[in-house]
Structure formats: structure tokens, C-alpha cells
Design a protein around this nucleic acid. Structure first.
Lengths: 220, 220
DNA sequence: TTACGATCCGGACCGAGGTCCGTTTAAAGT
DNA sequence: ACTTTAAACGGACCTCGGTCCGGATCGTAA
């Protein structure tokens, strides 16, 4: 009902290069103004430093701004909100993973049979999330947007695609949801830290899950 | 490292009766002091009224306190935090559902074969969540506690138990996670409101998911 | 009835996320 | 070089969740 034209036009969906300030002129992205790009880099670097020193909890928007010698408004203009900043920090790793399963070597990338790719995908995501668990957890948006976020959508799309190759007649759009859910950082956190399960068990669980879901003729 | 003895002893795990102030003396729960019980009822009633009038977003801790003619501290003492208050609002419905599948009539309750119970369970949860979607969404705790909450644990335990009856040799503890995840209010919200899927499709998806996961011999 | 201790109450207080808007500045046009 | 304009900047400001603690209240035992 009330949609005033935003004072902060668009906080950038999610751009890569967490460390360098190199102006990415190729491609199609808006290409920030020189000062903006510089500040962006300073902010990401400051945020990373704060995490290293005080953990994710120490990453306060104001603290980041101060550490980067920049105004608070600048942080919000650039990243939209705290989630956006945290996601940007994860962006490099996300892009790498994405490149790996889009065009990388076989177990993950194209060339292997779909089921095998799916298995490899899950294991890769599992361990990647386990590393950056705290950050992944903190970067999780509120429930209403958990599934809207670009990075997640990309993974979801990929799983759906693989599934469609394996089960052409199933509702893969839906079937991919439980698979993705199994890889949710919040779940990994719960199972490993709160229930004390070892990663090997989670990994085996994934393999089992894939096997059960992709068994071609549903029941008998 | 820093665990001072809490000024608010324990905000009550989750007690029922959202509307009446009747003192529940039987059972084992602490049984609040008269004034405390009265305020608790006033608070829940005020919160419900605020939701009806301004939606979940209108449920500010201060607004609730004011509407209930009570101090802000009282709200926090009683419910711990906003999530606790919202959960308390959902508690009645949660207890009802739980009673239904613990001791109710067959499709849901004991008596029917486990697979059938599982199917019925999913459908029931699906539609129940769809009704109170906004509230369910808002009541969702932060990612680190999503899986620790009592109400969810109860559902999860039940699913695990049913699964164990169906697949005695599988890692049901893990296998139940994707099932529960499919019923996550945040997912239902995404699929119905953001993707525009009808509930019938979600329901069919659940039936299909159960069928695939419980097909006894994994692959061939 | 009185006295006492445990519990509860209230609202000032704090920190953090997010917004606003007057000012500054990069960069494209003349 | 000079003007212009869209974009960026900064930090005061607002809201809201959550904490604290002095003082009021309940329930009980004498």
C-alpha cells in the first residue's frame, strides 16, 4: 500500500570479489562509482577482520562502519541490511561452488551421470557449510525470505535440474525441497553441535536420502 | 564463559490455555502466583487482539504490555522473548494436534498402519500451518534455535517413531529431517505465496515424498 | 494479625538495526 | 575549465527487543 520511491535505489543483489577493489567493467553489472567501490572493499575487509577478531556476533553495522572509517548510512546503502553484508562475505565461496558444479570437472560438473552429480553436490555443500557454519547461520535471512535469496535459488535450480534428468515424470520442483532442506546450515548446526553427530553420518544420510528419493519406480 | 544467575528464573517452557486464567493446579507445572497468572492471561488476550487488529507485525512487546495494562518487564519475565510470546499463542493449537496424533482416532492416531499415519500427519500439519501462516512465520526462532524448540521436537520425535516402525534398519533420526523440513511454515509460505502453488499440490507432494522415502528396498 | 521471604512488577535504560535528509563529490556533457 | 546531475556520504534519529533493579505484592507460617 505504501511504496515510496526508495532513498537507497537498489542495494546490489550480490556481487563478488570480497577483497579486491578492482573495478569490474566487463560483464553487465552497474559498475560502482570509484569512491563507492573503494568503500565497498574497505567495508568487506573491515567486516572480515571483525569476524576474525570477535566472531560473527562482533559484526555490528556500526562497528563495521567505524572500522572502515565510513558512515553507517554507507554500509546500508551498499548492502541493504546486515544479512546482505554477511551474504556478500560468503559470495566468493558461493560463486566458486557454483562454477564447480556448472562447468567444473565431472563428479560435480557435467559429464557424470546425474545421480552421481547429485551425490557429489550434496557432499560438497555439506562440508562447505560446515566450515563457515557461524557465518552461514548469521547470514540467514528472516523466515519470510529464506527461500527467495539468489544464492539459494541457484543451488535449488541446479538440484531441480538434476532431478528432472533422473525422474522426468516426478514433481521435481517439490522433490528438490527436502533435498535442499537437508543441506540447510541451520540443520547442520543442529545435528553436529546440538546432537553431536559426526559429519560422516550426515554424509551417509545424504547418500541414503538421494538413493531413496531417486529410486525410479516409487512403490510397487 | 559468563553465566550470571538469571534475573528471570525460567520463562516457562510453554504452557497451554491461551485464553482462560483458570489456575491449573493439577499436573506438575509450577502453578503461577495469582497476580502472575492473571497478567499472563491479560497479555495473551491483548496479543491476540493486536494480531486481529494490526497483524502480527503490530505485536510489539511494548504494545502488548500497554494493551494489557502491564509493565514491559512483565511480558519478558513471563514469556522470555517475543518468540516465546508468539509460541504461547500457538500453544493451544499445538497441544490439540499433539493429542490428536498421540491418542486420537486412527488415520492420525494409533490403530492405522504407520505409513498411513505418516501421510495423515503431514497433511494435518500442512493445513494447520497454512491457516496460521503469518503467526507461525513470526514465531520462528533464530536459525540457531529453530530445531531446539519443544513443539517442533515433539513433532519430530513422532515422525521418527513412525519411520522406525516402517524402516527398522534405516537411520530414521536423519531420515525424518527432510520430512519435517517439507512441513516447515517458511517453506509453505514460499511455495504458496511466492511461487503461487495451490495447497493441493503441496499435499500431493507430501504423499509422494512419503511413498518414495518409505519404499522398503532402497534401490535395486 | 503480623511478620517475612520469595516472587513479581514496572519502567528507565541500553544496544543494535534501519531510515532520513542535507551536504558532498564523481563523472559526463559543453 | 565550468556546469550539471545523479549518485554517494555521514551521522543524527527512530523503533524495538531485551536487561536491570528498587519497590510493591502474594502466600505462608507464627
Amino acid at each position: 500500500m505504501s511504496s515510496a520511491l526508495p532513498p537507497f535505489p537498489k542495494p546490489e543483489e550480490s556481487i563478488s570479489e570480497p577483497q579486491l577493489l578492482e573495478v569490474r567493467s566487463f560483464g553487465d553489472e552497474p559498475c560502482l562509482r570509484a569512491d563507492a567501490a573503494r568503500n565497498r572493499a574497505k567495508l568487506l575487509e573491515a567486516a572480515a577482520r571483525l569476524i576474525a577478531e570477535h566472531g560473527v556476533a562482533g559484526v555490528t553495522m556500526e562497528a563495521v562502519a567505524t572500522a572502515a572509517e565510513v558512515g553507517k548510512g554507507t554500509v546500508f546503502r551498499r548492502f541493504g541490511d546486515r544479512t546482505g553484508l554477511l551474504m556478500a562475505l560468503l559470495d566468493h565461496s558461493a560463486k566458486t561452488l557454483q562454477a564447480d558444479f556448472m562447468g567444473g570437472p565431472p563428479p560435480l560438473g557435467p559429464g557424470a551421470p546425474p545421480v552421481e552429480r547429485l551425490r557429489a553436490f550434496g557432499v560438497a555443500v555439506l562440508y562447505r557449510s560446515a566450515e563457515q557454519l557461524d557465518l552461514q547461520l548469521a547470514a540467514q535471512p528472516d523466515p519470510a525470505r529464506r527461500f527467495s535469496h539468489t544464492a539459494l535459488r541457484a543451488l535449488h535450480t541446479h538440484v531441480t535440474m538434476l532431478l528432472r534428468q533422473i525422474l522426468p515424470d516426478a514433481d521435481c520442483e517439490l522433490l528438490s525441497q527436502p533435498l535442499m532442506a537437508y543441506l540447510d546450515p541451520a540443520l547442520i548446526n543442529h545435528l553436529t553441535r546440538q546432537c553431536g553427530m559426526p559429519m560422516e553420518r550426515l554424509e551417509a544420510g545424504w547418500i541414503d536420502l538421494v538413493a531413496r528419493l531417486t529410486a525410479t519406480p516409487p512403490p510397487c
